[in-house]
Design a protein around this nucleic acid. Structure first.
Length: 564
RNA sequence: GCGGGCGUAGCUCAGUGGUAGAGCGUCAGCCUUCCAAGCUGAACGUCGGGAGUUCGAAUCUCCUCGCCCGCUCCA
């Protein structure tokens, strides 16, 4: 290895995750949680700059989604978009998670279908197949004679073949019998003819029909929905558990929320009843959520504790598709507006077979992280959830959660409306703030070996944790005093939205370099001429170029650049 | 969950059984009129953690934790 000559920094020109993580640590953006104890898998802390950056991201979301939704533009109904905030608890009544579907099934070993994503309880698999599977019900019609209990039915290979090529293609597209009927049927025939004294029962026959490579894999279990081979059973403890109360009894067991959205749904009626807001409107909720990820990985991208910013937007079912498209497009625009404007950001509409059964449409805003490239990783999901959530909570809580809309229905003689009662549909833009912060850092991270400070962060001024720096060119001749006065002025004006630096130590180049790595967009330098003509230089982080301006113009210049 | 790689100062890394190092960064002083400059000095180490082998372990063995990569997984 070559010796590193003094004063020369060797930096790879590629955008490597190692280099980004290294910068995050060294500049105080992200630390490993509990690092002095060896760290803890799946948890990360934010340092001073990271905490401020993430706050800026959260504030931007809050401003553009709650305070002034969609920058004041009108929604599909021709009116300004209306949203209100709530802040709900991390720990909710356990029945919330029963109703939402998060709890059901996750206490017991489950098997996942790789074909359609369906989860099945391992211990109830065959009950579910024999009583609830569409393709099974259709398939056993082809047995001769009709099935009785689990006795061996007669097998007519030609009928099974015909089924595989007609109904099977629609009902169980991933079943081995459908994908490769000749091979599967030959295995089955070998089995039946091989041991005529111990004929296979229905379960074994079906398992044969689900198995494409008997010798390699043994008999497989099919997915009740699509017929694909199920994965091995595993206990999925998705949610963190703890106890509310002193005794660690089942009665006291509670869960840390796996998403913030449910808090909105369970308070939907309270918001409607205690504010004067009317459908269509949104309820925003931000905060920590927890998922016991099996494999936390990729820096902060998949953490076990993470922060969400979710909006649940409620509207009339007839207008829901328009609202879905509206939010999907706005959310993409929003991420672009804070610095993800390049080709690394895409909006991906889910395929029909990828959708939850209740969803009429789902899109992901995805970013090409260094660790996903050339693929993409999800930043935000925008889902049309129909009335699924409110209906679930209405059923489980036995509280009516529907909405009486006084702007609809036929016109009454007095000019008013008769009104219409309905369950609102919900559009959910759900963003991950930690993923957002990571994407912003990755996108901002730039290497230019031609610069004296090759590594820098091109953070959008709105997101940058340090908004500006004030530097006296030298630490003497009255320059620090002028810098202090400018600093005080800038701090008074901008100190509430970010950090302002004031530093007289060391060479000016080193101070610029520090600000480059921290992503500070503008540095204002006081030099000897300042005393004579009241001008300072402003240095642009991204170009390194400088211009002189009157010291009294600095505040207005910065305000314009920061958009405040 | 399986397999591979890695773990030494804030960062990047050298050190393969014998006194813990370098560059950069950080801090202080000097110098310096615009880009990690120069000079002088200083602080900073559970060598990831634990156990073992050894006269002696950063180094060898075992266990463990963490990070990265590939599968797996991610309602």
């Amino acid at each position: 290895m070559l010796a590193i000559s003094p004063g020369v920094r060797h930096v790879s020109t590629a955008k490597s995750m190692d280099a980004i993580m290294s910068l995050c640590k060294r500049r105080g953006f992200v630390y490993q949680a509990s690092e002095i104890y060896g760290g803890i898998n799946g948890f990360w802390d934010y340092g001073p700059l990271g905490a401020q950056l993430k706050k800026n991201l959260r504030d931007a979301w809050w401003q553009d989604m709650i305070m002034n939704p969609c920058w004041g533009r009108k929604g599909p109904n021709g009116e300004r978009v209306k949203c209100v905030p709530v802040e709900t608890c991390i720990i909710q009544h356990p029945k919330v998670w029963e109703a939402s579907g998060h709890l059901a099934g996750f206490a017991d070993p489950m098997r996942k279908c790789p074909g359609c994503g369906h989860f099945v309880r391992a211990d109830q698999l065959w009950d579910i197949i024999t009583t609830g599977s569409e393709w099974f019900a259709s398939l056993i019609q082809e047995f001769e004679p009709a099935l009785e209990d689990t006795k061996t039915p007669a097998i007519d290979a030609s009928k099974l073949l015909k089924w595989a090529r007609s109904k099977g293609r629609k009902q169980a597209p991933n079943l081995a019998l459908v994908k490769n009927p000749e091979v599967v049927l030959s295995f089955l025939a070998t089995r039946i003819n091989g041991q005529p004294t111990a004929p296979p029962d229905v379960v074994e026959i079906i398992r044969h029909l689900a198995t494409a490579q008997l010798n390699a894999t043994g008999l497989q279990d099919p997915c009740p929905r699509c017929g694909d081979v199920l994965g091995t059973p595993a206990a999925f403890k998705l949610m963190f558990e703890t106890y509310a109360g002193l005794t660690q009894s089942e009665d006291n067991k509670v869960y840390l929320r796996p998403e913030t959205a449910q808090g909105v749904f369970v308070q939907f009626k309270n918001v409607v009843d205690t504010t004067r807001i009317k459908v269509p409107f949104g309820i925003g909720n931000t905060g920590k959520s927890f998922r016991n990820e099996i494999t936390p990985r990729n820096f902060t991208f998949r953490s076990r504790e993470f922060e969400q910013a979710e909006l649940e937007f409620f509207c009339h079912p007839d207008e829901s598709l328009e609202w879905y498209k509206f939010w999907r497009d706005f959310r993409m625009e929003w991420w672009k507006s804070i610095g993800l404007a390049g080709e690394n950001l895409i909006l991906r509409e889910h395929e029909k077979d990828e959708l939850s059964f209740y969803s009429k449409g789902t899109s992901d805003v995805e970013y090409r992280f260094p660790f996903t490239a050339p693929g993409f990783g999800e930043l935000e999901g925008i889902a049309h959830r129909g009335d699924y959530d409110l209906t679930q909570h209405q059923t489980h809580s036995r509280n009516k959660l529907d909405y009486f809309d006084t702007t609809r229905g036929e016109t009454l003689p007095n000019g008013g409306k008769k009104g219409e009662r309905y369950m609102p549909h919900c559009i959910e833009p759900a963003a991950g703030l930690d993923r957002g912060a990571l994407a912003l850092i990755c996108e901002a991270y730039t290497v230019d070996s031609a610069r004296p400070s090759p590594e820098f962060l091109k953070l959008h001024p709105r997101i940058a944790p340090i908004k500006a720096a004030v530097f006296p060119l030298m630490d003497k001749d009255g320059l620090p005093e002028i810098a202090d006065a400018l600093y005080d002025k800038l701090f008074a004006r901008f100190g509430r939205i970010g950090l302002i630096e004031n530093d007289a130590k060391q060479s000016i180049g080193k101070r610029y370099a520090r600000m480059d790595e921290a992503g500070c967009p503008y540095c204002f330098t006081i030099d000897g001429d300042t005393k004579a003509d009241q001008t300072v230089t402003v240095r642009d982080r991204d170009t390194g170029q400088q211009q002189r301006m009157n010291i009294d113009k600095v505040e207005a210049f910065l305000a314009e650049k920061l958009g405040v």
